[in-house]
Design a binder for these strands. Structure first.
Lengths: 137, 137
DNA sequence: CTGAATCCTACTTGATACTG
DNA sequence: CAGTATCAAGTAGGATTCAG
């Protein structure tokens, strides 16, 4: 359950080191997953790869706003955590295909609940925001 | 489904403005929800409030690593989006109680799937990381 | 007790140019 | 095609101090 979060993070409370997302390392399972989802591009890339495996350039075209630096970096992070697999074909010029692993598919499945929530309740959130902003001038 | 993400973000592709999480504003429902979850403290605070309503100081003690600046700020953001309600009791000195709204409870429910995934697969992720780091030394 | 205001640092991202 | 390297800018978070 969610309250387990307290226990997990409570561990670090006994040793009062600063809880940096990086500094925490693998100490908190929840952070190590969520920190990936919270970044700017991971979710979007996972969404594309869920549809079908993609090559680097395909992803780049599909997500025009991403810089190739961030595409490279985010893909490598996702690969490192085992969510994405990278296959190099020795063609000329070389081509590389990225696809979801089983773990990646499981992550995407869990993410969908959140995405569904977002679509279902976005209007409420926007409304709450304008009401809040109005009340606090 | 998840691939709707492409459509939503695709809107901004036609108008190639930079996709800042803040600059995007309310354009992408998914981002506006996920950006909150990805930050350092929201999830943890939501987890505590799910158990029971809490006063400011209670939360502060329950999450010793948070600075009161970030506790204040995160609570205000959560309140602004309608996830948390804030009730002031005119005692002396004043006390303030925070609790989850219905919307906040729905968000927490969606989050649980992700938390469950994190706990269930954390070991696999850690293993994947060390394997990746070993291969790419 | 519950914050607000200020300053400062570190991490994240973007822009650009270059390479096998 | 699929990256790497470098530099600049923005943003989040922490420490500290002050206030109703």
């Amino acid at each position: 359950m969610l309250q387990d979060l307290k226990i997990v993070d409570g561990v670090s409370s006994e040793a009062p080191t600063v809880l940096s997302l990086k500094g925490l390392g693998d100490a908190c399972p929840v952070r190590s997953v969520i920190s990936h989802i919270g970044d700017k591009w991971s979710t979007l890339i996972l969404a594309h790869l869920e549809e079908r495996p993609c090559r680097f350039g395909e992803l780049r075209r599909a997500i025009p706003d991403i810089s190739q630096r961030m595409l490279t970096q985010t893909l490598r992070d996702l690969q490192r955590d085992g969510y994405v697999s990278r296959e190099v074909f020795p063609t000329k010029p070389p081509s590389v295909e990225y696809s979801l692993t089983e773990l990646g598919q499981a992550l995407v499945a869990s993410l969908k609940h959140l995405v569904d929530f977002a679509f279902a309740n976005h209007a409420l959130v926007v409304e709450a925001r304008s009401r809040f902003d109005a009340e606090n001038m």
